[in-house]
């Protein structure tokens, strides 16, 4: 973990060598999801609700998932951009160092410009929270934080699986966008607005449901039962990363026996 921060520091220094482009890109990252959010806003202006959810409830959902997405893009970019590492052979370098491959790959790249995107989600989050009447409690606040953290872990897990595919082929891995970008787009609305099979897939296979729909119901006071249990739902979702890591280690073994 300490090493991860050292990587973070050195790459931050690198990034600061290109200040203008950093600000420009951060600015752009701020605006890209802006039009998407504007689209959402206009749809609500016309329809008023979506299956009983009103605008600010969906905005909360939107903010949480976008924040998780942007954070994972920032800190797990090494996995997101992994195909480059394999193509130019830099992965060999990772293997001749006495540290875990996961930390080294995570540390190989950071995308600090995503701060622009994070900032936008923070603003949406604040706006939504100010306009929702929620009976806050410590448990609910923790739940909200856990939603974001688990979201980051789920996205990271998907990146890791995608990166693992690079060991076999670097073609067509854009299909994984269905789960990253697609997951983000799907999960910016509460999952119950979709057909059952989509809801099930994104709850039991890729557990976005555990970081948006289920805890959201709890925070908005639409559930009954044990608070602590509801608080822990996002944590169950974050377990998703474990099988992903397993797949990764399998992939590394394959790479070392074939040397693609």
């Amino acid at each position: 973990m300490k090493l991860y921060f050292k990587y973070l520091l050195i790459l931050f220094k690198s990034q600061m060598q290109y200040r203008t482009s950093f600000w420009l890109l951060s600015f752009g990252q701020f605006f890209i999801p802006f039009t998407v959010f504007a689209g959402l806003y206009f749809l609500f202006e016309r329809f008023g609700q979506i299956k009983g959810w009103d605008f600010f409830e969906v905005a909360l959902c939107f903010a949480v998932i976008h924040m998780a997405f942007a954070t994972s893009e920032c800190f797990a970019r090494g996995y997101d951009a992994f195909s480059g590492l394999v193509v130019n052979g830099e992965f060999d370098r990772v293997l001749v160092r006495p540290r875990s491959t996961v930390v080294q790959v995570l540390g190989s790249k950071f995308e600090f410009t995503r701060f622009g995107r994070i900032l936008q989600s923070v603003m949406v989050l604040c706006w939504a929270l100010m306009n929702l009447s929620i009976e806050w409690s410590v448990v609910k606040a923790i739940t909200l934080c856990l939603m974001i953290i688990s979201g980051v872990l789920i996205f990271t897990g998907i990146y890791i699986v995608a990166a693992t595919m690079c060991f076999w082929t670097i073609q067509g891995i854009e299909v994984i966008n269905i789960f990253t970008d697609g997951g983000r787009e799907i999960a910016q609305y509460p999952l119950n607005i979709y057909q059952k099979w989509i809801t099930k897939f994104f709850t039991y296979v890729i557990p976005f449901g555990t970081v948006n729909y289920l805890p959201l119901m709890y925070i908005l006071g639409r559930t009954e039962g044990n608070d602590i249990l509801h608080m822990l739902t996002p944590l169950i979702g974050s377990l998703f990363i474990l099988p992903c890591l397993l797949v990764w280690h399998f992939g590394v073994r394959h790479y070392r026996s074939t040397g693609s």
Partner: peptide, 14 residues
């Protein structure tokens, strides 16, 4: 995905 989202919007549209 888009179709489903719009479907949901349309369902209870006033």
């Amino acid at each position: 995905m888009y179709i489903m989202i719009f479907e949901a919007f349309y369902e209870y549209s006033p």
